[in-house]
Amino acid sequence: MPRAILAGLVGASLAVSGAAFQGLFFNPLVDSGMLGVSSGAGFGAALAILLFNRSSIYIYIFALFFGAVAVLLSYIIGRTYNTTPTIMLVLGGTVVSSIFSSLISLTKYVADPYEKLPAITFWLLGSFASVSRQDLIVGLPPMTIGILGLILIRWRINVLSMGDREAHTLGINSNLNKLIAIGFATLATAGAVCVSGTIGWIGLIIPHIGRMIAGNDNKKLIPISCILGASFLIIIDNIARTLTSGEIPIGILTSMLGGPFFIYLLKRTKGGSW
């Protein structure tokens, strides 16, 4: 049971943050890991596995901490003249992500190849195989707060997607609003990554499936993404458990099954109004 709840929450977190980031950066190609939270958290977990052992509580702490550090770094890099131009944030996020990716590689390189390296690799693939009550306790608060926050602020994301100039003249403090939305998205994604590892694809594709079904108004898109993300990951997790006798890491399955499903939808809806 905790496993199904967690899978649903993780799916919802990644999907909602992805949808929010796409609106925030007015770029349909970004996902929930945009500002480096996934690679930051991945590095944190890898480092914790390297320094301690594979089921240590430090994995959560390190993953959450480095995920937050990565986003903060991206934000500081993107900040110029007291404003945060979107293109600078995207660049900052890309740079920070690649730094943390190489740090992950470095951690793997120095890890003991018989014990630690497989643990790191397996963790990075993403899985719910080893979830426990502890995961629920650690992951529940940040994910719930993040998801609820983004759902509450969802209409503002519409306005922010008009770009800084227009958002400002429409009467909202775009820097502050952006910071709040990024904060919620980071909480949700970091919470998700620290219980399940990096599960790709959801944060990019689920919002697009949502756009095909409900349109681009974030007022509808964010809740729809939340439901779709949760159901999608619960279903995939069930498949991951039952498909073979040994469990397939879910991070592999999301793209393997999600890809064809997405193509099917694209053909069915002719891409909505894109």
Binding site: F26, G163, R165, G215, D217, G272, W274
Partner: peptide, 14 residues
């Protein structure tokens, strides 16, 4: 209120 010179249309909002 402001009417921009060009408005970049990024998402197909209604």
């Amino acid at each position: 209120a402001y009417v921009p010179q060009t408005h970049e249309r990024r998402f197909p909002y209604k």
